[in-house]
Design a protein around this nucleic acid. Structure first.
Lengths: 336, 336
DNA sequence: CTGAAAGCGCTTACAG
DNA sequence: CTGAAAGCGCTTACAG
C-alpha cells in the first residue's frame, strides 16, 4: 500500500468527497450532526485514501497532546511494568498513547523526566509511588494535567488517588506472623519518609499493638526498595540489639535480599526466622523457600488509573478528587 | 511559579527580547548563527518566562513527532521491560519520548497497536521479537519510520537489526550440557516459526551434531514463551517416546514451567533431568534450583537500539542497514 | 445541514 | 547578522 506517496490530508478528503474540510472534520469527530448521505460519502473517501488525522495538527489546535504518562522510579521492578501494561491496554483503545518514564533521581526537584513530560503537554499523568516532592506534585497539578497518584493522601485539587490499602495489607501479613507464633518481628522498611513505606509501617505497628506486642524502634530499619537494600537491612537487623524471629519486608525485592543473607548464614527460614514480602512479584513463588507475601494487583492498578484519567479527559467528569482502593490478598507460601 | 497563567509562546519571548520569532527560533534550534549579545538576551528571556517550545507545533511544522516506540508481545516479560528501560534512558536526553506498545495478537496483520503508532507519525520504532508478519515490517519500513528489529534477517531497506547471537547462545548452553555428560537432550522451543525460536533451535541442533549426537524430531516440542507453555512442553516431553536426561528451554519462562512439572513429579534436577533457560531474568537466580541460563543483555539491547535510531534521526546516518550483535554469556547455576 | 476563514505555535525559505 | 511572511494540518466559532 502506497509506499512513499504523501499521506492524505483533510483537504484531500474534502476535495474527493466534494465537501468542506469543516464537514470532514465533523464526520471524523462526531461533534456536529452530518447528513447521512454526506457522512457515508466522506467515510468512503476516508477509507479509500487511507486517511488518518495528523496527530500533531489536531493537538496543536485542541491544546491536547493525546499522551498519558506513567512515572515510576524503576521500570525494571515487575510491579511497575505490570502497572504500565495495565495502563497501556486501557488507554490505547481511546486513542491515547501511554509513555512510561523512569525518574532517575527520586525526589529530585521536578526532575528531568517530569519536566520533559510536562513540556510535552501531556494530558494526564500517573505518578508512581516514590519520593516525588510536594512541590513536584503541585507543579503537575497546577499545569492542568490530569493527575492520578499511586498512594499519598487524597487532597482536593491534587489529583485522584488509586491505591491498595497499604496499612491494612501490612497489618494483615504481620497479623499472619503473630498467629503463627512469631513474637520478635522486625520490619525492613523502605527509605524513611517514602511511600508506601510510611503506610506499611503503620500497619506493622498497629498489628503489633493489637497483639499486645511492644513496638520497638530498634526493630525497624530503613533501606532501599531493592534486593541490595534487603541485604543491608538483614545485616543491620542481625547485628542489632536482640534476637528476632521474623522479618516483615516492605516489598518483595527487599525480602529477596533478606533471604540472600539468611541463606548465606545458614539461618533456617521459616524455622529460625520467618520472612514476608509485599507485592507478589513473579519471582516470589519461584524462590526457595517460596515467599509469603501480599498481592497488590499491579495490572489492575494500572487499568484503574487509566480509567480515572479517561473519566476526566474524555467523559467530562469534573467533580472532586476521588480515591479508589483495590483489594489486596495474603499469599501464604513457605517463608512464613 | 505561574500556576494557571497561559504558557509563554515564541511570540512572547520575541516581544520581550525585542527580536523576531525567527531569531528566537534560531537561538533555540541552533540552526543559524546568532550574534552573541542577541543570543544572550533571548536566552535570558527564555529562562525568565520559563519558555518551552510547544511540541505539537514544532512537530506539525517539521513533520516529526519526536516519539519513538517499542513494540513487544508482552510488557510483563522482564526481558522486555528491561529493554524498554534501556530505550527510555538513552532517548530522553535527546528530547524523544519513548512509547511502549504491547501487540495483543502477535502476527495479526498490522495489528491495532502498530497501526495506531504509525498513525501518530512516530519517528522511529523498535520491533521486538515476535511474529510480526513480513507485510507488517514492510508497512513500517515503507512509512518512512526509522526501524530497528530485534532479530530476523538483515535485509536492505528493512531496518537495522540489533540482536544477541541466538544461534551461538543456544549452541553454547547445549554444549555445556554435553560437557556435563547429558546425552538425551530435549528442546522446549517457542512457537514454530517464531523468533528467536528458530535461531535457537539451530544452535541446539548444531551442538548435538558437533558432539556426534543424533538430532531427533521427537525431542523438540513447540510451545508458548510462557510458564504455562513450559508446563505443557514438559508434559509432552515426559509422555514422549523415550527417556530424556536434559531439557534445554527456549527461554527462562518456559524453564520455570518445566521446573514446575519436574518438582511436582519429584524428578530430581539436575540429577534426573537437567534444565536450562535463556535470558537470565531476575527470577532465574532466585529459583530452586537456581537456573542455569544464557544472559542476554536486555537493557543494553534497548540502549543500542536507541542509539541506532538516533544515528539515523539526529546524526544524519543514511548508509545501508546495519546489524549490531551483542555478546551473551552462560550463567552456570544449579539446574544443569 | 453546511461552508469560509481564522488561528493554534512553531520553522524556514526568501530577502536584505 | 536579522526579519516578514508563508504554511504545516487540523478544529471551531461564526454565519447562513
Amino acid at each position: 500500500m502506497g509506499a512513499d506517496t504523501r499521506r492524505a490530508t483533510i483537504v484531500d478528503v474534502a476535495a474527493a468527497a466534494g465537501v468542506s474540510t469543516t464537514t470532514v472534520s465533523h464526520v471524523l469527530t462526531g461533534r456536529r450532526p452530518v447528513a447521512a448521505a454526506t457522512k457515508a460519502r466522506v467515510e468512503a473517501v476516508v477509507a479509500d485514501l487511507d486517511y488518518r488525522a495528523n496527530a500533531s495538527a489536531r493537538h496543536l489546535r485542541t491544546e491536547r497532546s493525546g499522551i498519558l504518562a506513567l512515572v515510576v522510579p524503576d521500570l525494571t521492578n515487575p510491579f511497575n511494568s505490570a502497572m504500565a501494561a495495565g495502563l497501556h491496554e486501557t488507554v490505547l483503545p481511546s486513542g491515547y498513547l501511554a509513555v512510561v518514564g523512569e525518574a532517575p533521581e527520586p525526589g529530585a526537584p521536578l526532575s528531568g523526566v517530569l519536566r520533559q513530560l510536562l513540556d510535552r503537554g501531556i494530558d494526564g499523568m500517573v505518578l508512581g509511588r516514590f519520593g516525588a516532592s510536594e512541590a513536584d506534585i503541585d507543579s503537575v497539578a497546577a499545569s492542568g494535567t490530569a493527575l492520578v497518584r499511586l498512594g499519598g493522601p487524597l487532597g482536593s485539587g491534587r489529583g485522584d488517588v488509586v491505591r491498595a490499602n497499604e496499612v491494612q495489607g501490612m497489618f494483615d501479613i504481620v497479623d499472619h506472623l503473630v498467629h503463627r507464633g512469631y513474637r520478635r518481628i522486625a520490619f525492613a522498611d523502605g527509605p524513611a519518609g517514602s511511600s508506601p513505606g510510611g503506610e506499611r509501617q503503620r500497619g506493622y505497628e498497629q498489628a503489633l499493638r493489637d497483639a499486645g506486642l511492644p513496638v520497638r524502634d530498634d526493630l525497624v530499619v530503613h533501606t532501599a526498595y531493592t534486593r541490595e537494600g534487603g541485604v543491608r537491612a538483614a545485616e543491620a537487623l542481625l547485628a542489632g540489639p536482640g534476637p528476632i524471629d521474623a522479618i516483615a519486608c516492605c516489598n518483595d525485592l527487599i525480602a529477596v535480599g533478606v533471604l540472600d543473607v539468611l541463606r548465606a548464614r545458614r539461618i533456617g527460614v521459616p524455622g529460625d526466622i520467618a520472612v514476608t514480602g509485599y507485592d507478589d512479584i513473579e519471582a516470589a513463588e519461584l524462590m526457595s523457600p517460596a515467599l509469603t507475601t501480599v498481592l497488590n494487583p499491579a495490572r489492575e492498578i494500572g487499568r484503574t488509573s487509566a480509567r480515572m484519567l479517561l473519566d476526566r479527559l474524555d467523559h467530562g467528569y469534573t467533580g472532586p478528587d476521588r480515591e479508589t482502593i483495590l483489594a489486596h490478598r495474603i499469599v501464604a507460601r513457605d517463608s512464613a
